[in-house]
Design a protein around this nucleic acid. Structure first.
Lengths: 190, 190
DNA sequence: TCCTCGGGGTGACAGATGTCATGGGTGGGG
DNA sequence: CCCCACCCATGACATCTGTCACCCCGAGGA
């Protein structure tokens, strides 16, 4: 519904034409190629494939297509990862609607469009300190599984799970796993 | 952005006019009164006041205004609470955009619009078994606070916090507080 | 070559968490 | 009046979590 609404909104602009719409991340590249789009608008939370991964794949497959990320959550870590994935613009959905068409025009002129406050936050916060394994364990702990379950799921010993969680808790400056999960989520590290 | 886009979309319909837009739950009633709206579209997650609470207040203050809830998450518990709050329709945002205008027209004719699958799920799942206090404690536990913190925040003894959490864990059929939080969230009990 | 970092592991230990039994108080319904 | 649900509390107990010290291995970088 939101996608259709935003597409309609963009289609009302004189100089913008919506040439394709898909509801899944893993259909982005085919749609972009078949439609010959100049700009791709991607959400981050999508079924099939994350908008971040889709952005990276799209950049690789069709380097000429500009990429605009439009997402609900303005997490600094998302911004960072979006930029690393080759995005040209990063918008949050609670920005005024006029910014959307504006961003499309500006990336077509070769500009990059980023909320300055968000950029500052991303720089202030520093990069993701978690190692891949720590991230795995933290993600597994996120939905409330016990150490033994996590150990089984990741083929680790229970003690190792405890060790990884302990370092993750310290790196996030949290006081237990739940808080660590919350903080890592807020920062976009999960 | 989403609100503006949906408003534009609705405004394109011949028989629908968008007479007001607000971004906060606690501004809904004033806007509805001043604009003389026939139908109010409410999201659940809003700053200021929940769409559910806003719906209840609106029903009380202006009983003639039809209420349509449009939300991201189709949690059965949300549906239940929406209906108890006096909503006339409940839509999820990943439904096709055409359903939005359709729902507006139908509630104006006095119909109630609910996704049948969601209605079945809401009935199958049963009502919220948590007592108000259990809900408070679970909510406080949700962001990773320790028992002692929760006890301080709610002016309870630590043992009482443990007891409430224990019953909440059993009622949600979870195995620890984190899982209980996840399940309660999924069901819309928080 | 040595040093560091990531991955994986063990054992010990304190403190947090979850369960249970048991008690008290209030207020509403039958 | 009694019963029940909810609220609040205590104490005991077992288990889970989080921390720390220490171990091994392989891959790089200086």
């Amino acid at each position: 519904m939101v996608r259709e609404a935003l597409a309609t909104l963009l289609g009302l602009e004189e100089d913008i034409e919506v040439v394709a719409q898909v509801g899944r991340g893993d259909e982005v590249i085919a749609a972009a190629r078949d439609s010959g789009a100049d700009v791709a608008l991607l959400d981050i939370e999508m079924p099939g494939m994350t908008g971040l991964d889709a952005a990276a794949a799209l950049r690789k497959a069709l380097p000429g297509v500009r990429i605009v990320i439009v997402t609900t959550f303005g997490r600094p870590g998302y911004l960072r990862r979006a930029m690393e994935s080759g995005a040209d613009a990063f918008l949050v959905k609670d920005a005024p609607a006029a910014q959307l068409a504006d961003a499309v025009r500006r990336v077509l002129r070769g500009e990059r469009v980023i909320d300055p406050a968000l950029a500052a936050a991303a720089l202030a916060e520093g990069a993701d300190p978690l190692t891949p394994r720590e991230r795995d364990v933290l993600r597994a702990a996120a939905d409330g599984r016990a150490n033994a379950d996590i150990a089984r799921a990741l083929h680790l010993s229970e003690g190792t799970v405890r060790n990884y969680l302990s370092t993750a808790i310290q790196k996030t400056a949290a006081r237990n796993r739940a808080e660590a999960v919350r903080i890592a989520r807020e920062r976009g590290w999960l």
